[in-house]
């Protein structure tokens, strides 16, 4: 005899904030498409329980200068496109990027040490070449970040860029730049619920509306601390759904950067044969990491390999349709 089992449903009071990256001409920018994330009233993909109004977005990571330390698997995949930021941006959009994560590595004092003005020019050129929203990262050196990101903020006023990373030690200048020129910020904290919340409070205290703050809880790749990231993201999301206002920011995960860091994705020769095909190993590592973090509440995945972009797009399609 068939038995009807009613699935238990959790009733949450809280909702993740809806955040839009990019601004169309009507909104004061020049983007042809924008990306809205957040708005969930339930845990990831539990469509029967609450609403998930926006699909997780895919941002493709690229650099202003050709990367020096990337795996050959990645360099081969991007080939000549990676030699120039504009061509890289166009190729990424062709491959299905919802947004671009532009890393201004060339401004690093120990790399090319490019000036803030040059960096701003690069961002302007990318904005001119593609229509998707941008997430812009400085060289991740506090002093230079401040300089570069403020120049970028000014040059791209009104575009609703996401500027990163704001950390507890240097959030003030970047937040001030975002406030002045109509941008968003990425608030990054080291895998801790309280620290994530504290930084959101500090940023909010400066007067930046919370619908302009993304949080990056710091990603640990598969085999390299993913369980910590998973657990912290899950706790942040549970707190958000339980109504804790300062944890209701959509989460961005730098999956590509983290999962391409380690030996498994970088070293071809002299590794155990059990590790299998080198060309496939890196993308699989990235996919597995992305897949897990999607289930812990990631709203934006920052990816590196074209194959990962394709697979994650298909995966999200399925997860959103069920």
């Amino acid at each position: 005899m068939p038995v009807t089992v009613e699935l238990p449903k959790e009733k949450w009071n809280g909702k993740v904030r809806e955040i839009t990256l990019g601004a169309t001409p009507a909104q004061g920018g020049t983007r042809t498409s924008t990306v809205t994330v957040g708005g969930e009233t339930t845990l990831p993909f539990l469509h029967f329980e609450g609403s998930i109004p926006h699909r997780p977005a895919l941002a493709v990571e690229m650099q202003d200068v050709p990367p020096q330390d990337w795996s050959t698997t990645l360099l081969e995949a991007w080939d000549t496109a990676a030699s120039d930021p504009v061509s890289w941006a166009k190729k990424a959009v062709e491959l299905g990027a919802d947004a671009l994560a532009v890393k201004l590595r060339g401004t690093h004092p120990e790399r090319q040490n490019r000036s803030a003005a040059e960096a701003a020019e690069t961002v302007k050129a990318i904005l001119g070449a593609v229509g998707v929203p941008l997430i812009v990262y400085g060289p991740e050196v506090a002093e230079k970040d401040n300089e570069v990101l403020v120049a970028v903020a000014e040059a791209a006023a009104g575009e609703r860029l996401a500027l990163g990373n704001c950390e507890d030690k240097n959030y003030r200048t970047i937040v001030a730049g975002a406030l002045a020129h109509g941008h968003l910020v990425v608030a990054k904290t080291p895998i801790d619920v309280n620290l994530a919340k504290q930084l959101n409070i500090l940023i909010s205290d400066m007067g930046l509306p919370l619908d302009r703050v993304l949080m990056d809880p710091t990603t640990g790749a598969l085999g390299y601390g993913i369980e910590y990231t998973y657990s912290v993201m899950e706790r942040l999301r549970l707190a958000a759904l339980m109504g804790d206002s300062m944890t209701q920011q959509p989460m961005i995960c730098t999956v590509g950067e983290e999962s391409w860091r380690q030996k498994e994705s970088k070293v071809k020769d002299g590794v155990p044969s059990l590790w299998g095909d080198f060309a496939g190993r890196g993308p699989l590592w990235e996919m597995a990491t992305a897949m897990a973090l999607l289930q812990s509440g990631a709203d934006i995945l920052v990816l590196r390999h074209p194959k990962t972009i394709k697979t994650m797009r298909e995966t999200i399609d399925k997860l959103m349709s069920s």
Partner: peptide, 16 residues
């Protein structure tokens, strides 16, 4: 440790 990190803030993180 969780409560401690939460309290490394003024007055503390748990504003609500």
């Amino acid at each position: 440790m969780n409560e401690y990190t939460s309290a490394l803030f003024m007055p503390h993180t748990n504003l609500e």
